[in-house]
Design a protein around this nucleic acid. Structure first.
Length: 492
RNA sequence: GGGCCAUUAGCUCAGCUGGUAGAGCACCUGACUUUUAAUCAGGGUGUCCCAGGUUCGAGACCUGGAUGGCUCACCA
């Protein structure tokens, strides 16, 4: 890709045409061009535009030449429109020069709108301009581009020829834009916190490590925005959010990309129930605004996002899907036996909470298709959440599930610095036992809590998965423009 | 990281039991002034992913490797 390769015939032909244009005094890479209408506007407003002169600009996607008349389809941002060139209309010189056009070239065209004998709304061109010559051929018009490797590596080609792909990424942009607008309207401020960090905290995950030359030190790419946003609550910025890229050094799958986008929201003087209402209202309103409905179709099944979503405790959910009732299990030993009986791989030292969570992951998560908030997460996996009053094994935390995927994660934020230090210390014990995803100690965060953090609800939403759900895509690579792939050098 | 599958022309794909590579579109030449998967006549443009091996002969069989997809493990 980096180096010049011998040109194949198709590319050589296009270069020859480019040179021929130049020798005729025509610049193949032309100047700016003002289109009066998008293709779709001309079609929609045909009644008033018929016989009117319009200008259009875009990429030629098909050409049908009939000697002294030529039809072609011009594709712009919105869609396609047919253009018609007639020898008498454009004159011999322009007509001859149009013979050097290729599928893929950008052109601007001016002419009157009319309807052909076969009924297609068309621009009868009397003047056109070369805007950019395409030196490489596009994939075939009929079957398009299917090779997923090329689709991901050369997304620009995918976007040109696969209409639904363009739709998905336009919708992704609208989803995020709508999210911002709603949160701003609700009085939240968008913040930007460090991506390069000396301590990568706020989640249980392995970070990417990088290096700063001048400071001569390791830096970590953030795995969450959580701990910095909560420092802002300490500072008195009551309602904040951040939409940003985070990085986790984990495996890649249809639902995992090493870099992905999260939304985190923190609201002072609130709790996790506030966040439940916020979550269901936010997602419902996004669906309404972007897609005009709160009932989406995902993989052929309808999912109703209308609030309120049911709330169920993890103990209840585990009981429902595995038949094991943790409300009747008290000790770690009983839980261990239950896990063994259920065929789970049990390591020594697992606690009641660990095992409850294993049951949940193993038997429940993928069953949670319609929206549901699962509450009552074990403290072992929730080092930043407040304990549940009356049951110190559990926390005031929920996760929102839709389509079998975790979409949201929220808790009543732990703001007791003494408790927070103990939690970090428990995580350190896990880390020393070999769990390199356990949370690291963050002294400055504890210092911040010691200054006092108001009670707060905090929420994280995985934007990529939300986009997958709302756009009906089952691979995260189909909602990330340039997903992480191994490099290749043998593509031309 | 493990398992399974895929990789052949610019694109989408076929290629049998091992006999020296094909189709459609695209492209090139010519014809054609309302076509639309335009049509008609002619033209095959190739590192069969890479490197070894078996064989008289490999796109095909064997070994190793690369990249991708799915999946398991891990995670969100």
């Amino acid at each position: 890709m980096e180096q010049e390769q011998p040109l194949n015939e198709l590319m050589q032909v296009r270069r020859n045409k480019m040179e021929e244009l130049r020798s005729r005094g025509i610049e193949p890479f032309g100047p700016k061009y003002e289109a009066s209408h998008y293709s779709t506007e001309i079609i929609e407003k045909f009644d008033s535009l018929e016989g009117q002169r319009v200008t259009v600009a875009g990429r030629l996607m098909s050409i049908r030449s009939h000697g002294k008349a030529t039809f072609a389809h011009l594709q712009d941002y919105r869609g396609q429109i047919q253009v018609y060139l007639n020898l008498n209309q454009v004159g011999e010189e322009q007509y001859k020069n149009f013979e050097l056009v290729d599928i893929g070239d950008f052109v601007g065209a001016a002419g009157e709108v009319f309807r052909t004998r076969k009924g297609e709304i068309t621009v009868n061109v009397n003047e056109y301009t070369y805007l950019a010559k395409a030196l490489r051929p596009l994939p075939e018009k009929w079957h398009g581009l299917k090779d997923v490797e090329i689709r991901y590596r050369q997304r620009y080609v995918d976007l040109i020829v696969n209409h639904e792909v363009k739709e998905t990424f336009i919708n992704r942009s609208r989803i995020i834009q709508t999210m911002r607008e709603i949160l701003n309207r609700w009085g939240f401020l968008e913040m930007e916190t460090p991506i390069l960090q000396t301590i990568a905290g706020g989640a249980l995950a392995r970070p990417f490590i990088t290096y700063h030359n001048t400071l001569d030190m390791k830096l970590y790419m953030r795995i969450a925005t959580e701990l910095h946003l909560k420092r802002l609550l300490v500072g008195g910025l009551d309602k904040v959010f951040e939409i940003g890229r985070i990085f986790r050094n984990e495996g890649i799958s249809t639902i995992h990309n090493p870099e992905f986008t999260s939304l985190e929201i923190y609201e002072s003087y609130a709790d996790y129930e506030t966040m439940m209402e916020l979550t269901e209202n936010l997602i419902y309103e996004i669906a309404q605004t972007v897609f005009g409905t709160g009932r989406i179709i995902f993989q052929g099944k309808e999912i109703d996002l209308t609030p309120p979503w049911p709330r169920e405790s993890m103990v209840e959910v585990v009981h429902k899907f595995s038949g094991v009732d943790f409300s009747q299990i008290q000790s770690d030993e009983e839980a261990f036996t239950a896990g063994k009986n259920a065929g789970l791989e049990m390591d020594k030292g697992l606690s009641w909470g660990d095992i409850l969570y294993m049951f949940f992951e193993e038997f429940c998560e993928e069953q949670l298709l319609s929206p549901v908030f699962v509450t009552g997460f074990p403290i072992e996996v929730s080092p930043l959440a407040q304990k549940m009053p009356g049951d110190p094994r559990l926390t005031l935390r929920f996760e929102g599930f839709i389509g079998g995927w975790e979409i949201a994660n929220a808790f009543t934020e732990l703001n007791d610095p003494i408790d927070q230090r103990e939690r970090f210390e428990q995580q350190l014990t896990r880390r020393e036992a070999g769990d390199d995803e356990a949370h690291v100690m963050d002294e400055d965060f504890i210092t911040a809590l010691e200054y006092g953090m108001p009670p707060a609800g905090g929420l994280g939403i995985g934007i990529d998965r939300l986009v997958m759900l709302l756009t009906d895509n089952i691979s995260i690579r189909d909602v990330i423009l340039f997903p992480t792939l191994r490099p290749r050098t043998d593509l031309d």
